[in-house]
Design a protein around this nucleic acid. Structure first.
Lengths: 186, 186
DNA sequence: TTGCTCCTCACGTCACGTGAGGTGGC
DNA sequence: TTGCTCCTCACGTCACGTGAGGTGGC
């Protein structure tokens, strides 16, 4: 029939091209974020190849913190803007907010990247450790040139016992629970 | 008894200090990731102040892609390692894998950061756009010195119509909804 | 005909959020 | 006594995952 049909993608092809699951694509459709151009006689969804880019776009908005229904609302609100200029103002504000959050996330991720690099470097020096030690000694290791208290936290967490009682304190009464320092309204 | 108690944190205090919800902390406990040192007579959970760092550690592992039960298993497997040296080998392998994934995520986030910066810069030039245009023209804007085809994708996605048929093709119309039912027998 | 792809329910999962109804502790 | 914090269920939510039972299309 139509020469054009060959250009359209079935849901599985689209899923592979976009790196998403078929289920995810069904969900985007259900939420009104992505619509097949048509259906085959058998009911198969047929997508415009541009849907690949559409999914990449959805993905980026998800990464910067939109939920799927927020994306839907975002589109809807833009479309219903009284004028183009007016609508762009709102969009810009949202993007500026997301940019700030994205940069915070980046900073956090970079810290963790460093933590991983440190932990890996530390663990490399464990290759030559004697075989006999139990893992319980790792949190306060002083073998292989390690110094107690310098175990990278990412690794130390594996053997930390938070359940244990506070060590080495016989503590003065009252200091902490005077109820004053709750400043945080996140 | 009494002196030490003052140093312990109730769940709300811990939540605020760690930037998590009380519910999340309950969940970590349920999964065996975090245990209060004791309970008050009234049944209130009392936590070691070290629990704040513990939660920060859990958080970092979540960020690099561990689910909570994977964290539990990770700890368990480490603790049951036959020897410290042996256990560190497995941990190092996992961390190396997570480092690679973290760097991919970082790269992706940096791309999106750029996308946002571009989109914001573009939208700034819309401030002086005439008020009369409808939002439907934004996707192919040629005002304000904009050139068609250079609209940043993050913004263009808001007005893209993937639902439309592939353009520039004359599709031979076989009518779509010819009253066929799509195979549901239930 | 075979094998792969797709269809529509519909329940499961993960990391919490959000009350409901009741109690602790200063 | 008041007000805040906490307790334990238990159901809700979000973005899918995962079959179950049936059909399309080369």
């Amino acid at each position: 029939v139509a020469t054009n049909d060959k250009k359209l993608l079935r849901v599985g092809e689209l899923a592979r091209a976009a790196g998403k699951s078929v289920r995810a694509i069904h969900l985007y459709e259900e939420l009104g974020l992505l619509t097949p151009v048509e259906r085959s006689q058998g009911g198969f969804r047929l997508f415009n190849p541009a849907a690949v880019a559409r999914i990449a776009w959805i993905n980026k908005l998800q990464v910067i913190g939109f939920s799927l229904s927020e994306i839907r609302d975002f589109v809807r609100e833009f479309e219903q803007g009284p004028s183009a200029r007016n609508a762009t103002v709102g969009v810009r504000r949202v993007f500026e907010q997301k940019l700030a959050e994205t940069r915070e996330t980046l900073a956090q991720l970079q810290i963790i990247e460093n933590d991983l690099v440190e932990a890996i470097a530390y663990l490399e020096s464990c290759q030559d450790c004697a075989t006999g030690y139990p893992v319980t000694e790792c949190a306060a290791c002083d073998h292989q040139g390690h110094e107690v208290g310098t175990v990278p936290e990412l690794f130390a967490g594996l053997s930390n016992k938070v359940r244990e009682n506070v060590p080495d304190y016989d503590v003065e009464v009252h200091t902490l629970t005077s109820g004053k320092n709750y400043g945080n309204t996140n």
